[in-house]
């Protein structure tokens, strides 16, 4: 119950800025994922893909959701009409792991805990931003992991993994993130 109320409060603060006033109180789950959808949008803003990642300058940024989709319609609505550097968003629900390669951003649902290593391994070295919501996701080779702390959504970044993927993450994003490394050492939290 307490958690629910907190989420509602957060949603009330954030939603107007994102333009979802009408759907804010759909459910507590969708409120959390509303925030997370916003985060994904922000990440797209603050991460630079190599030019080889796109076939054309206005090719859309393809977001793939691996596993069980926790967003429902939220993500599609959030990203509808939004553009980053002239590119629109395209959300796909992936049927199989190999479909990952066609995406620029991959959201790994917590339901894919078992196939995590396989998926990470598959996209290694490719310019694909992997976002997960599984504890230890970043340490295990994922690039950005979302987690809840003090009733707020936070994220951690595996800078090494980003480098391997040839993704340039803005220092401004890094300034807000918790940096993690694969050899299981905790990065200093910056504020």
């Amino acid at each position: 119950m307490r958690r629910l109320r907190l989420l509602i409060t957060i949603a009330m603060v954030i939603l107007p800025s994102l333009g979802f006033e009408a759907h804010a109180q759909e459910s507590s789950v969708s409120s959390e994922y509303l925030i997370k959808a916003g985060f994904i949008y922000n990440f797209a803003n603050l991460v630079q893909w190599p030019s080889t990642a796109f076939t054309q300058p206005d090719s859309p940024i393809v977001i793939g959701i691996l596993g069980e989709d926790p967003f429902g319609t939220v993500l599609d609505r959030v990203l509808a009409g939004k553009k980053v550097n002239g590119r629109i968003f395209l959300v796909k629900r992936l049927k199989s792991i190999p479909d990952l390669k066609e995406c620029h951003i991959v959201f790994v649902s917590s339901s894919e805990m078992a196939h995590l290593a396989e998926a990470i391994h598959l996209v290694k070295g490719m310019p694909i931003l992997t976002i997960g919501e599984i504890p230890g996701f970043a340490k295990r080779g994922g690039i950005i992991n979302l987690f809840l702390e003090d009733n707020k959504v936070h994220f951690e970044v595996n800078v090494e993994a980003a480098k391997e993927a040839d993704l340039n993450i803005s220092s401004r994003l890094l300034a807000l993130a918790r940096i993690v490394q694969e050899p299981a050492t905790d990065g200093k939290k910056t504020e």
């Binding site: 603060v13 603050l46 803005s170 401004r172 994003l173 300034a175 807000l176 504020e191």
Partner: peptide, 18 residues
């Protein structure tokens, strides 16, 4: 403004204050 843009985007008040 540039430096606090991300914090604003993520609604990260402590970061903005910093």
């Amino acid at each position: 403004g540039y430096n606090s843009a991300a914090a604003m985007a993520f609604k990260d008040e402590p970061a903005a204050t910093a």
